[in-house]
Design a protein around this nucleic acid. Structure first.
Lengths: 201, 201, 201, 201
DNA sequence: GATGAATGAGCCTTCATTCAT
DNA sequence: TATGAATGAAGGCTCATTCAT
């Protein structure tokens, strides 16, 4: 891979990735041909192979890209002093994002990656990382909640955190399949879980 | 496709499906070639195409097969008088199934189908059906719970049901990606949700 | 090939040939699969291969069948004392036959064989034979015409005969391609050729 | 099919068509595999499919190619003031062409197309067009002949034109099947038809 | 003889990738 | 670097033919 003018190169790479993302979201990894990406990007085969060694590397790069997006959602938690409000903020941010066209497109790709993870070590790594990070943040919040006495000390923060992530993964699935999906219903259900782990008076 | 006698046909079909399932679980739909299935089944191309018109039809059939398996898990609910116990039974049955080799294999295929649903109408139908059925059963149980006064009348049974299903879908994902997964932790988290919707005293 | 009960066998053969003929006329040799013939005949693969060693042999047999049909048209000439009337009778018989559904079907197959003749020695033999026979009969008639003084002695009977046959082959082609075709126009043109070879007064 | 630059494209297309033509003339459309064409052209599968979408499209293109060749023969008529000489010129040009290796090869393909026309609408169109054009030219010549008083006013120019074309189609068939064929005999027979439609004195 | 499920060579076509310009 | 024509391995599928029942 070339090393001239990193600035331009990065821009080109991004151009290609954006095109690939559009194709992948539309037709999936396997249905998308390099030709599709070429057409979408308005570039040439040679050019793309100058920036990515193979289709797989392109998919990989798309995966990394997605990563950042999800990580950003977690930022919502940082601002709240109350850990439970932090959790609510994360949940709300996710639900909002899921309703935006851009967010949906991103998650269509995520679902591809989830399936791909089963047979690509590197992608699995990525995907798992995409779970661990929110789990870590949520776990942290729950622990703070326990310290503050608003979360039941009996619960295992990590497994609740993973459960919350699981819940939202399931929401994503149902949303992507076109099931009617209500953010407020989802939020209410989330609150139920929160109240389930709250300290009993 | 020549019309085959029902006698041998069903057995042969099953044989082929079993082989396909093994391949699909191992390598995914797209990485699996018909040749792979042929080798696995110990049959010939012509024979397979005598039973399934195309690779897509094979995938479709695999999807239907999976369907049955999930439906069976719901049977767990039928025996319990207490609706909450019914829910617990379903959860437990799912978690147990997820730990069996056979159950895992089946879910590896499920994940393929979840992704495939994004661009195959028919598969999406199947997958959505695979959500609706458990949602219906769970909704029913929650409603009975409300009538019996053990479930908070304020909750929306259907959205809680969908949340529960979502939770388990997320568990499946995490399990498939090789995250250390504890059934009892999952069950505890489930109980937390249950207590979150229980009638407050 | 078996040799039991020649009577039944011949009937079976005929049944198969009739089915094959129908398929071939409808879709051509190459587009017709053995399965098509099987379906049309209401028999089984094994049965057909009990009577014909291969698809090529079936085509061959169809060719022979067609042969007889054309030969019958020549019979028209036998009854007329006047050789020119004999020619007219042959021409008329051919034109009439070409308007019948059955005759057209037969010629659709003929055209297949004409093309096939280019690369199958045996079929070429058949096809050439299908030209030689009418040419022989017509030549004979023309020679009688010359002897009787109604046909110009300067003409070469054989080459005129071949020309007449060529003319009708061309008519067949045009008819098969769906060009509007008038028997009487064709007959008039034929008369023109006849008058062109008549003895000049 | 990627869009290729017109520069190389035309040449490459021609190269492929020439190779295909050689194969088709030798073995017919159906016996010729794309591999054969690839080998003959010294190219690759991908390259061929970059220029022709399918084998059928290749056949189609070959048909169009043949078209031009026949049309060129009609040019022979343009130079002669005498319409009958024009007809003779067309006849002679056809007969000469039929004796050349190149002409024969072209007609072997024509015969394939004639048969193919029975079940391919587009090819039938082409083939019929290949009849109509010479028929139109000849009809015109005959009409001029009638106006000049050298052709009998009683004859129908169009049906005579079609008969002439039919005659030559038949000649082509017989020639292709390897029947000894004499151009001068054919020409003499043609003259007989001409004299048959000449004005009687 | 008849049946029809099974065979498997081989066909058409696609598409990730390369490389001369 | 970018281009885009060319490559060719490999995939899905067909269909003439066989053979155990």
């Amino acid at each position: 891979m070339p090393k001239l003018k990193p600035a331009t190169m990065a821009a080109r790479r991004d151009e290609i990735l954006r095109a690939a993302e559009a194709c992948f979201a539309r037709q999936g990894f396997h249905q998308t041909t390099i030709s599709d990406v070429i057409a979408e990007a308005g570039l040439s085969a040679g050019c793309i192979y100058g920036h990515f060694a193979s289709k797989d590397e392109l998919i990989q790069a798309i995966g990394e890209r997605r990563h950042g997006r999800d990580a950003a959602l977690l930022a919502a938690a940082r601002d709240s002093a109350d850990p439970l409000d932090g959790l609510r903020a994360i949940a709300r941010a996710s639900l909002v994002d899921m309703q935006k066209e851009e967010g949906l497109r991103s998650r269509r790709i995520a679902l591809q990656l989830w399936a791909e993870a089963l047979r690509d070590e590197a992608i699995c790594e990525q995907v798992v990382d995409g779970v661990r990070k929110p789990v870590a943040v949520i776990t942290e919040l729950l622990q703070r909640g326990q310290r503050l006495g608003v979360v039941d000390r009996a619960v295992n923060p990590r497994s609740i955190a993973r459960t919350m992530v699981a819940m939202f993964q399931g929401f994503v699935l149902q949303r992507l399949w076109g099931e009617p999906f209500s953010s407020s219903d989802a939020m209410t259900a989330f609150e139920a879980l929160l109240s389930g782990i709250a300290t009993r008076r």
